[in-house]
């Protein structure tokens, strides 16, 4: 099993997922989000980003604020 941490929650996948597969499983819309992979902002194509066992993802989006 491949273990991915997403916003502090542990997710298990049978094979290494792409970023898009993680987003789809968690029903996170792809618009207006920022993704950090192991502390670095990921700027490329989400579909081509194959994750590795133990990867740590932080995904953020905009909320109301002043």
């Amino acid at each position: 099993m491949i273990k991915i941490s997403l916003n502090g929650e542990e997710l298990l996948f049978e094979k290494a997922p792409t970023l898009v597969e993680v987003l789809e499983r968690m029903e996170i819309p792809r618009q207006f989000i920022a993704v950090e992979r192991n502390g670095d902002i990921f700027e490329g194509d989400f579909a081509e980003c194959v994750l590795s066992d133990g990867d740590n993802l932080e995904i953020a989006r905009f909320v109301g604020g002043g």
């Binding site: 916003n7 968690m26 996170i28 920022a34 932080e58 995904i59 953020a60 909320v63 604020g65």
Partner: peptide
Amino acid sequence: MALRRVDL
């Protein structure tokens, strides 16, 4: 607007 972790 602010930026926060996505609420899973």
